[in-house]
């Protein structure tokens, strides 16, 4: 196709988009709603992942050492574990006996009774420990076994037994939320795709007589098709921009309420970090969707 024709079909596509204002408006509104739905799903997903992450990071396994094991040995073990770079382990933190006591006192609010009790004992009753965070909640069992197998002689005890119930419950819940989220997201995406497909199909249907005219005056398939693809891309692009704006608006609008429900939460800050990516994804998704929709819809109006 010659350049002059290419310029013309691009202009045709643009004209289809901006001259038929009502049809364009109706089409864009519906696609915008679909994309908005997907955007909300993505944001909810981010939120849930964040919550899961912070809950998961609060789970850990503590490895308490016998009082006879000195600090150097413990640090050696920590180094050893780190150097083995066991893939299930995310982080290891050393808590000295003094730190353990300090934390304990803080937790008890520096109560007088505890202080007196400690004074009576005369020495720090708390053991030193290594606090290990796993990459995945399902890894704790294995880590616990491994620690006992390698370092049993130094270990006073590990606290996995105590936490086992909580961990396995939480693990089930996290898997449930994750799978549910993925399923819901996919459902939203499928709905959005179907709605967009149908909307573009209907807007082309409104122009079906014109495609016939174009064929009659000697327009080739490409000359009819390319403007339609441009039109579809423009629908997708405009809708993605609008949906992004609504999404940002929504975040600002619900921020005060979220603050009331959960303390120390600022969802504007939280989502602000991802907003450019989300908008970018929305635009790419919208354009692709518009393109594919019009590509499929125009097929039936072309010369067979």
């Amino acid at each position: 196709m010659k350049t002059i024709k290419l310029a013309r079909v691009l202009r045709e596509g643009w004209q289809n988009f901006y001259r038929d204002k009502w049809l364009t408006l109706a089409t864009v509104i519906i696609i915008t709603l679909s994309l908005y739905l997907i955007g909300v799903a993505i944001f909810l997903g981010f939120g849930v992942l964040h919550v899961i992450d912070s809950v998961e990071n609060r789970i850990n396994i503590s490895m308490y050492f016998d009082f006879t094991v000195d600090e150097n040995k413990i640090l050696e073990i920590k180094k050893e574990l780190e150097e083995k770079s066991i893939k299930q382990i995310q982080s290891i933190t050393y808590i000295s006996r003094e730190k353990a006591l300090e934390d304990f006192m803080k937790q008890e609010g520096d109560s007088k009774e505890i202080k007196d009790a400690l004074d009576m004992i005369g020495e720090n009753p708390l053991p030193a420990s290594l606090v290990i965070v796993a990459n995945d909640t399902s890894d704790y069992d294995g880590i616990d076994k491994y620690l006992h197998q390698e370092y049993d002689e130094y270990i006073m005890n590990t606290n996995l037994e105590k936490n086992k119930g909580v961990i396995s419950e939480l693990q089930k819940f996290i898997v449930f939320v994750r799978n549910g989220g993925i399923l819901l997201g996919m459902l939203f995406a499928i709905i959005a795709i179907l709605v967009t497909l149908n909307t573009v199909r209907m807007s082309l249907y409104a122009h079906r007589k014109e495609f016939e005219v174009m064929r009659l005056v000697g327009a080739s398939n490409l000359y009819i098709k390319i403007p339609t693809l441009v039109e579809g891309i423009l629908y997708g692009f405009a809708s993605a921009l609008l949906a992004s704006m609504f999404l940002i608006g929504t975040i600002f609008a619900i921020n005060p309420f979220a603050k009331q429900i959960i303390e120390n939460v600022n969802i504007v800050d939280f989502y602000g970090k991802n907003i450019t990516q989300v908008i970018l994804v929305m635009i790419i998704f919208g354009i692709t969707l518009g393109f594919i929709s019009s590509f499929l819809a125009i097929q039936r109006y072309l010369e067979k």
Partner: peptide, 25 residues
């Protein structure tokens, strides 16, 4: 051939009862 049809149709001009003008042009 299907690809040549648009060119072939340029041998003709057509007018109809309903004019068939492109409304956005």
């Amino acid at each position: 051939k299907r690809k040549i049809l648009p060119h072939f149709r340029r041998n003709f001009g057509t007018v109809f009862q309903d004019f068939k003008l492109l409304q956005q042009k």
